[in-house]
């Protein structure tokens, strides 16, 4: 059973000076799981992700991927940031290949996966364009493609659709689900949009207000494709909303 666990977080605590941001967080993520982290604004969600990828060092606690301390140099981790993060000087195709080249994958593998991603995300026609020539949502698709192309052990997404309008968001959410199912990646998705969390995830980690700790792990076992207007969906959404309220 424990072999099934991809990510193990134990007693994760982060202080900035005297300010306690994350307080003793522990949880497991199973291989191939899709987990959403929801919590009130400013509760430390982004700090939490930055700890996972070692952009920050924890004050105490441990993050293990496959039972080894998390290390981007060793593990295959991808991060989709909230801000636009396609490299302006690389074409769509080169952007998608960037991470694979850093990881020094074989050229045939890089080529094959690039084609896979370009087709899956409908980017084949713009493969030689630069990000500047694309719309914001298309650029974000490139970034998502770049992350999935790694077939990452762990894919972290930090409110990737926060700046998208609702129609584009629905579309991109479906694309992420499709890629997740295709690649079998383990995904950790941060959002403050509860509807998005219920729509996407297999499990929701609900954080409390700062200093953040886990209030509840909520399993979302709705069948896919999910219907946001169904009774069970609305029920779950309202339940989580209630858990988040701190006032």
């Amino acid at each position: 059973m424990s072999d099934d666990v991809k990510v193990k977080v134990r007693g994760l605590t982060k202080k900035f000076g005297d300010l306690l941001v994350l307080d003793n967080i522990s949880f497991d993520i199973k291989k191939g799981d899709f987990v959403c982290i929801v919590g009130p604004t400013g509760c430390g969600k982004t700090t939490f992700l930055n700890l996972l990828v070692k952009l920050l060092e924890p004050t105490s606690g441990q993050i293990l991927i496959d039972n080894e301390p998390a290390d981007p140099k060793k593990h295959n981790i991808s991060f989709v940031f909230q801000e636009p993060s396609a490299f302006p000087w690389l074409t769509v195709e080169q952007n998608i290949q960037y991470g694979m080249k850093i990881k020094k994958l074989a050229p045939e593998v890089i080529k094959e996966r690039t084609e896979e991603i370009l087709t899956a995300l409908g980017l084949s026609d713009v493969r030689n364009s630069f990000p500047r020539e694309l719309s914001a949502s298309m650029e974000q698709r490139v970034v998502i493609g770049r992350s999935f192309a790694m077939h990452p052990d762990l894919l972290l997404m930090d409110e990737p659709y926060a700046q998208m309008d609702i129609k584009v968001r629905y579309y991109l959410e479906d694309q992420v689900i499709k890629l997740w199912q295709q690649t079998g990646s383990t995904v950790l998705f941060i959002t403050h949009n509860i509807e998005e969390a219920v729509y996407l995830s297999e499990k929701c980690l609900i954080l409390t207000n700062k200093p953040a700790t886990i209030r509840e792990e909520k399993k979302i076992d709705l069948p896919r494709p999910r219907d946001i207007a169904s009774e069970e969906f609305i029920e779950l959404r309202e339940y989580i909303t209630k858990q988040i309220k701190w006032w």
Binding site: P72, K73, F87
Partner: peptide, 16 residues
């Protein structure tokens, strides 16, 4: 810095 962080999370070395 976001772009630097992208490279870092992919495990890029300082030189890369």
């Amino acid at each position: 810095m976001t772009l630097v962080n992208v490279a870092k999370t992919y495990g890029a070395t300082d030189w890369e």
